[in-house]
Design a protein around this nucleic acid. Sequence first.
DNA 1: TTTAGCACTCGACGAACTAGAGTGCTAACG
DNA 2: CGTTAGCACTCTAGTTCGTCGAGTGCTAAA
Lengths: 343, 343
Amino acid sequence: MLTERQRMILTAIVDDYIRSAEPVGSRSISKRGDVGYSPATIRNEMADLEELGFLEQPHTSAGRIPSHKGYRYYVDHLAPLNLLSSNELKMMKTFFAEKLNAAEQVAQHAGTILSHMTNYTSILLGPEVFHTSLRHFQLLPINETTAVAIIVTSTGQVESRTVSVPAEVSVSEMERVVNLLNRKLAGVPIYKLKTALYNEIGQEMQRYVEHFEELMKVLDEALEGGSDGQRLFLSGTTNMLNQPEFRDVDKVKSILDLFEETPTLMRMMAAASSGTGIQVRIGTENDHEAFANCSLITATYAIEGEAVGTIGILGPTRMEYARVIGILDILSKNLTKFLSRPH
Amino acid sequence: MLTERQRMILTAIVDDYIRSAEPVGSRSISKRGDVGYSPATIRNEMADLEELGFLEQPHTSAGRIPSHKGYRYYVDHLAPLNLLSSNELKMMKTFFAEKLNAAEQVAQHAGTILSHMTNYTSILLGPEVFHTSLRHFQLLPINETTAVAIIVTSTGQVESRTVSVPAEVSVSEMERVVNLLNRKLAGVPIYKLKTALYNEIGQEMQRYVEHFEELMKVLDEALEGGSDGQRLFLSGTTNMLNQPEFRDVDKVKSILDLFEETPTLMRMMAAASSGTGIQVRIGTENDHEAFANCSLITATYAIEGEAVGTIGILGPTRMEYARVIGILDILSKNLTKFLSRPH
DNA sequence: TTTAGCACTCGACGAACTAGAGTGCTAACG
DNA sequence: CGTTAGCACTCTAGTTCGTCGAGTGCTAAA
C-alpha cells in the first residue's frame, strides 16, 4: 500500500512528533539524515500521505502531524521493537525482587512502577476473584442485627461485607450453617457459589436449621460480593498534566473527571483487553470522548494460566508506543510469572 | 481592634471576593447598599485595613483582596452562621436514609456526598481500627508457605494480610494457636494486641505448641496490619480545576500531585483535626507549600464516643467558609450519630 | 467626619506589524 | 523521469503601541 520511502517518511514524522509535540516540517525530516532526500521531495510525499489520510495539517503553513490512521499504521507496521534500557531493566528487577505477598498488592505496585517508568498514567484492574475458588467462608455476628461475611479465595484474597441478620436467626444456627458451607463449598469457583448454594446445599441445609428462608437471604447477601470483586488502581494521574497537549485545564478536565468514574474505567479496561497480548487503542477507538486524544495500551496478566487482570497505560495519542509496548510486554509477563510462582 | 465599620467593610470584601474571585473595589462595595458610605470613605478604610494587614492589593490600580490574616479574621469573627438550604438538607437526609452497613463504607460515601454538595474536594480519613477491639482473629493457610491473616474488629471492619509461614509449622498447630488467641484476645483493643500477645499469651502458648519462635514471628507479622489500618478517600479532586485561581495547569499540578501522596495527606489530616469541633486551616497554615493557596476545613467523627476518623474539605483560600463549615458541622454530627446507632 | 472631584497608575484588550516556518508549484537538473 | 532548487504565498506567534476603564490616593469643600 505504501512505498518504502513513504513508510520511512511516515516513521520519521511520527517519531519526531512523538518527541517534540510540534508539527513536523519537510526540512527537519530532510536534515535528520536517515531519509536522504531534499525537503522538496519529502514535501511531495507528505502531500501524498496526507491525501491517503495518514497525515494532517493543523493549518496551511504548519508542518504535518500524524492522523489517527497514521498512528494506527505506525503501531501496526512501523514501530520499532524496543529493548528496555538498562535503567528500566534495573527498576523492573528491583521490583520483582521485592517481597510482596497478596496478589492484589503486587499488581497494584506494578502499576505504580509502570507509571513511574513511563511518565504516563497507569490503570490497573486488580486480580478478579471470579475464577478463583473458595478457600474459606465465615459469618461473624457483630451485634444483634449485623454480621460480617468474609470470603477467602484460594489465591489469598479476602472479600468482606456487612450483612444484616434477622433477629430470629441464632448464633449457633449460623455457626452450623457456616460449618456446613465450608465443608461443602470449599474449592468451588467463586462464580459458581450461588448456584451451588441453591442446588446442592439447600436441601441439606433445611434439615440442619430452623430459619431456612431467613438464612438463605443472609447468605445471598453475603455471596453477592464475590462476583464483582475486582478493584481499579490508578497511578500517575498527574502525569497527564505534563503533556503539552494537555496544558489547558479544559482539555484535561474531562480526562481527570473520568478517572473518578471507576465503573466506566473498569468497563473500558475490560473491553480494551478483550484480545490476547498487547492491545493498543488509539484516540477515538477508546469509545469515550474524554479519551479522544489519548491512547490506551493494555496487557493482561494471569495467575496459574488464567487471565485475572489487566494492566494498562494511558497517554496522549502522541505517546511513545514502542517504548511503552516494550515495557508493558515484559512487565505483564513477569507479573504473570511472579504471581504464578510457588510462593 | 477593628471598628464596626471596618468589620463591615472587611466582611463585604471577603464575601464579594469569595463570590467573584476578582479584586474588590471601593465603588462596588459602596453600591451594595448594606454599607452606606461613599467610595471615598470606603477607600480610606480600605487603606487602613491594608496597613493593618487584612487586605492586599495585587497592583496599584486594582481593588483589594483579603490577605491570609483577613481570611483568618473573617473565619474567626465575621463569617455568618450558615443554615443549610432545603436542597442541602434533602441531600443529607437522603444519604442518611440509605442502608449502608460497614462503617468505612458509610464514611467514604459521606465524603462523596460532601464533595458534591460543596463543589470542593473532600478528604476522608476512614475509621481507624486503633481503638476498636478484636472480634475475631483467623489464620488460614493458602499453600505450603503462605497464610492469610484476618482481623475482624468489633465495629465490623476487616483487615487482612498475607503472611509467610515457615515449613515446620503444621496446620493443626496453627489452628490450636488461633483458637487460643480467639479465646484470650477477643475484646482486647487492637492497639494492645501485640503487648497482650507477648505478656499474657506467650507463656501459655509455649505449652500448646512446638514451634513457638516461628509462630510468634508469624503472629507478629499478622498483627502488624492492625495498627495503621486507616484509609484515605478522596472525592471531587477535579473540582479544584473549576476554581478560577487554578485555571493554570502549573498551579493545580502541585496540588493534584499531593493527592497521590497518601501518607503525606494522612499526616496533614491527622494534624489538622487535632482539636475538637471544626478546624479551619488557611493557606500557609497547612504546612505544605502545595496548599499555600488552599484552605482545609476538617471535622472529626466518632463511633461510640471515640473519635475515629476525620472528614475534610479542601478548596481555594477563597472558599465559601460559612457554607462549608455549616455543612461539615451537620454532616459530621449526623455521621457520628449514624455510626453509633444500634444497627 | 464624610464626600465630591481630579489627576494618576496600571493592566486588559485590540490593531497593526513583523518574523519565520512551512507549503505548493514550476522549472531546471542529472 | 524522478529529484531538487527557487520562489511566491500563507498563516501563526509574538511584539509594539495606543486606548479604555477600573481603581486609587489626595485635596478641598460640605
